[in-house]
């Protein structure tokens, strides 16, 4: 296996890039917070999806630059991204089903009064 001992496999990220990414992340966080504080009326229904899109965008920034995915082997990227596929599968198929028996769960007799926990 040929390689040079000067560490050809290290890809130090430029500090400027890292700081730029950090500032972008902070700004996006502020944006999400502001969105939830100001009632934009129309956004109500989409609010959740917009918040999730922003979160995913932030996640992508962290993955690409903080986690060096940008410089990483494609296989490693594939490995990690496959996890999200399986999470979506898990959520999706479970969700397709659950509304079917929601009523039987809701109507099940409950334990009436919660036992108090003493501090």
């Amino acid at each position: 296996m040929s390689h040079d001992h000067d560490g050809g496999f290290a890809h130090p990220a430029p500090p400027k890039l890292l700081i730029t990414v950090f500032i972008a992340l902070v700004l996006l966080t502020i944006l999400t917070l502001a969105m939830s504080s100001i009632d934009l009326g129309l956004m109500g229904a989409f609010g959740f999806w917009i918040a999730m899109s922003i979160a995913s965008f932030k996640a992508a920034l962290v993955l690409l630059f903080f986690m060096h995915m940008y410089w990483d082997k494609p296989f490693n990227v594939l490995v990690f991204l496959s996890s999200s596929l399986f999470v979506i599968l898990f959520i999706g198929l479970t969700l397709m089903d659950s509304s079917h028996y929601k009523n039987s769960v809701d109507e099940y007799p409950r334990q009436p009064d919660p036992p108090a926990l003493s501090p």
């Binding site: 999400t32 939830s36 999730m52 922003i54 979160a55 993955l63 986690m67």
Partner: peptide, 19 residues
Amino acid sequence: WHLVDLIWIYLFPLLYLID
């Protein structure tokens, strides 16, 4: 460590910013 951060990036809007 970044993954722990990544999970929080999702937890924050999901838990704190429900509208």
